[in-house]
Design a protein around this nucleic acid. Sequence first.
DNA 1: CTGTGTTCCTGTTCGC
DNA 2: TGCGAACAGGAACACA
Length: 288
Amino acid sequence: MPELPEVETVRRGLAPAMEGARIENVEVRHRGLRWPIAKDFEKRLKGKTVEGLGRRAKYLLADLSSGDVLIMHLGMSGSFRVGKDAKPGVYYHEKSKSTAHDHVVFHMSNGATVTFNDPRRFGSMKLVPRGKLEQEPLLRALGPEPLGNEFDAAMLARACTAKKTSLKAALSDQRVVAGLGNIYVCEALYRARLSPKRQASTIADRNGRPNERAVALVEAIKLVLNDAIKAGGSSLRDHRRADGSLGDFQHNFQVYDREGQPCPHCKGTVKRIVQTGRSTFYCPSCQK
DNA sequence: CTGTGTTCCTGTTCGC
DNA sequence: TGCGAACAGGAACACA
């Protein structure tokens, strides 16, 4: 699930429970995440203070007093919940109060409990010394932050000009721009009125300079991400914010998961196609 | 190097 | 209601 707006929402939800607090204890109940959680994981975390909680693309980065950085990724189905007294505030299965898939639990010095739940276990956690963060393979190849000032039409055009893929594939590529996923790529392309099937290189001229499509696309990306963050992200299925409340942005989807429904802006119908193995939703009559 | 398909895993939804 | 198939927000990896 979690794309940039959801991860940012998680970060904001976890910050009050984690920043400035010491990790009194950490329980790893299932080491088999995307990669096995390292053997020294608990030892390196116990007794350390979280000095700050940041985000890079879809990664959460917890700065620790030990000099390590805890890198966390939610994968497809990961979520965090903040609770007290060693209990999560909200359960993944709220009715059954099930703790299945609660793989990692942080017990903080302020009494907060931070629980990582991930049914599909595509998420990951990894400790890296702060000094080696720049060489970290997970982060190294990431493209620009889409909400940063440095991300503009010129930069996007430069990244797309040599691409031989569709716009959908290019925007999904974390090396081009970091943090978009299937939902927000579809939504940004819709807002920019650009077809997901259009060749990515057509947002640049022969010299790699941005054209009006690149300008519209960058504007649409920033707009949709900012709106989604304001709404607390999207809540599909059981997904919730760290405090258990639901994000609202799914109500603002214009095309995502709306196959067969009317386009909000023309008389067309939202269509679903498959590109590089993933569903794409778009309006063929207003996205060109 | 570039682009595409497969794979990890569990849960939900859909058609019969 | 049951039951198998299809599908789901990601991204590393193998391969052409």
